[in-house]
């Protein structure tokens, strides 16, 4: 009785009911059925499935390409955020707006566009083919698709932090004789580091699970350019749900670890944002 009396604002029961019902249909029930299905699998079957050589090499391809792509996005994300916050130049509004294109453009469309650009007849592929470098249907192609997908994450994580940092600390450092680069390294970098790592983690997690933009450009050769989500997809097409689930579990655990690390870093990040 006491507890309800404290709630002055109306609608607690109603919003709790609606929220829980909708959450159950979309998230909770499907997650429970995943757990039930997993419990029915024998541990031996799970281990046999995920230690299969083809599956193992797909983990390697997925992690390697996602990692390289996210490192590129980490560096370019910080550069883009810096340029967008600190400088004024023509077309700035358009540059800022187009950063979000990977969120708005369907992944399948991005996939076929990047593929047609990087095959031997494509605009970019033709150029690299002269040097004997192939992009489409190699790991380089997968990495390019994943760079595309991950661009907005680091930029959008770092931008608000840079906006909150005023120039006074840097100015003080420079007045005291620090070079501009030293000021950046010693003062700005530590401040944006948690945000940048958060963006990196989000991009990495997204890239590990990415499917649409990669399938077209990857060529999907077993042991070479076959990514893990693709293996899950082909298991599903063979109606081999138990093996698909076993492989999916590995990916799920992997993304939960990434999320956990992000939440640790974000804790620090929140303090900075609040402290201004």
């Amino acid at each position: 009785m006491k507890k309800t009396a404290k709630r002055v604002i109306p609608g607690f029961g109603l919003s709790l009911g609606i929220t829980l019902t909708m959450l159950s249909i979309i998230v909770i029930i499907p997650l429970i059925s995943l757990v039930i299905y997993t419990l029915k699998l024998s541990p031996k079957e799970i281990i046999d499935t995920i230690t299969n050589a083809r599956v193992m090499s797909s983990f390697k391809v997925s992690i390697l390409t996602a990692f390289i792509a996210s490192i590129v996005n980490l560096i370019m994300g910080v550069v883009l955020a810096w340029v967008l916050v600190r400088y004024d130049f023509p077309l700035k509004v358009i540059l800022n707006g187009i950063i979000e294109l990977p969120f708005a453009l369907p992944t399948a469309v991005a996939g076929i566009a990047l593929t047609s650009l990087t095959t031997d007849n494509g605009l970019i592929g033709k150029f690299f083919a002269k040097f004997g470098i192939e992009i489409a249907y190699t790991k380089a192609g997968i990495t390019i698709a994943l760079i595309f997908v991950g661009i907005p994450f680091v930029v959008r994580a770092v931008q608000p932090v840079l906006e909150k940092l005023d120039g006074s600390y840097e100015e003080a450092a420079q007045t005291m004789g620090a070079s501009r680069f030293t000021a950046f390294r010693r003062i700005i970098l530590p401040e944006i580091f948690p945000a940048a790592i958060t963006g990196f983690g989000l991009a990495f997690g997204r890239c590990i699970g990415e499917y649409g933009s990669v399938v077209f450009i990857a060529g999907n050769m077993p042991y070479k350019t076959e990514i893990t989500p693709l293996i899950i997809m082909s298991k599903l097409q063979e109606y081999n749900y138990s093996q698909a689930t076993a492989i999916a579990l590995v990916l799920l655990i992997f993304s939960f670890i990434i999320l956990f690390v992000i939440s640790l870093v974000q804790h620090r990040n929140a303090k900075i944002l609040k402290g201004g």
Partner: peptide, 9 residues
């Protein structure tokens, strides 16, 4: 946070 393919699964 989960892969679209896993969502489908």
């Amino acid at each position: 946070t989960i892969s679209p393919v896993i969502a489908g699964l």
